Computed example of a mutant assay.
Amino acid sequence: MHLSSAYYEFTFDGSVSTLAFLNGFTYELKIENIDGAQVFTSTELDGTEPVKKYGKVHALIKRQGKDWEVADWSKTPSSIMCLDDPNDRVERLVIILSNSDHDRANLPIKPVGSLGPRLWASNIGCWKWQGTATWVNPTSTQSTTANVTWERVPNGGGPGVIAAAVGDRYGVVAISYRPIGGTITFRASGNDGGCTYSGSATFDFANLPPTTNFLVTNNFVPAGDFHRVYVGGGLTPPVTMTQACPAVSLSTAPRIWLLAVDDRQVPLKFSADGRRMSGTADAEGDVFTWDFTAIRGP
């Protein structure tokens, strides 16, 4: 209707972790297949489109321990919130869709895309993940043991949000994480053809680069191969092994300590409650295990 507003109020309990408003009001919102993933995509509308010209999206947000906030989401394709993070924990949300057109000769505005505005809620963790991982090579008796914590990567687009862009379309897909705490320990000892070798090292996980120590969770994929799927990988700095044969020599190389990768044959899925990711991978005799649990702040 002209000069009118529609109010939608939501409250959230502890079962919701990831929350996203997908703006299908002042953007064209669709579900598209991008590289095997079903993705919500948003396309900016032409300024002459009535819903773009007259439509507005505002939000009233009540976060834990904070006063109500007012946000204008009219020019934002998606707004991401992580309720696991106590600083971002939304308790109540009011979304207001309005039409500022006063000319009754015009038709009422309506969404352009196949989908209208959507509020996406998921139980998949989105703030921090903590747990253990191991790597063992039985042949060479080399191994790593990790006890680590990851935290979502902060950026201007939201909580470490990874987006898929195809042409003029933008789709929210996943959240990425960085190392913030814990240790990774490497050990090696054994014999090989009459030679003995040994080595050990411990690394502070918080100091390792996120480019080679990464975790990605697909919190926003509604269907398809990558629905509720995660991926992770880790590489230590170079470690030194000493070999006596009988002369002493040194070898230095990084070691893979985490290989949680979806090979499209055995998808790496979250637990049903979205709070755990665990699994085992065998890569030509190298055996990797991991078990990470989502952390929800106080």
Score class of each variant (00 low, 15 high):
G190D: 03
D204Q: 13
G181C: 02
L208H: 07
I184Y: 08
F186P: 10
I184Q: 06
G194Y: 07
S189Q: 13
T196K: 08
A206F: 05
F203Y: 14
D204E: 13
A201R: 11
G190V: 01
T196Q: 09
G181K: 11
D204A: 12
T202K: 04
N213S: 11
N207S: 15
R187E: 09
N213G: 14
D192C: 03
P209K: 08
S200D: 07
T202Y: 07
A201E: 12
S198M: 00
T211H: 04
D204L: 09
F186H: 10
P209H: 09
S198Q: 00
N191Y: 10
I184G: 09
T185H: 06
C195E: 13
G181I: 01
A206L: 05
S198R: 03
I184F: 04
T183A: 13
C195Q: 14
I184H: 08
T212C: 07
T211W: 05
S200E: 12
I180C: 03
T185C: 05
G199H: 12
G193N: 12
T211Y: 07
P210S: 12
R187K: 15
D192Y: 13
I180N: 05
F186D: 02
A188F: 00
Y197I: 03
R187V: 01
P209M: 14
G193S: 08
T202R: 07
R187L: 10
I180S: 07
I180F: 06
D204P: 06
I184M: 04
D204T: 12
R187M: 11
C195I: 09
D204N: 15
T202Q: 06
P210K: 11
P210A: 05
G194R: 06
R187N: 10
G182C: 02
G181R: 05
A188P: 03
A206H: 10
G194F: 04
N213K: 12
T211K: 13
T212F: 06
D192P: 01
P209S: 15
G182R: 07
A206Q: 12
T212S: 15
F205A: 14
A201S: 12
T202H: 04
G190A: 06
S189A: 14
F205H: 10
T212L: 08
R187D: 08
F203N: 02
T211E: 11
I180E: 09
A188E: 03
G199M: 10
N207F: 08
T196E: 10
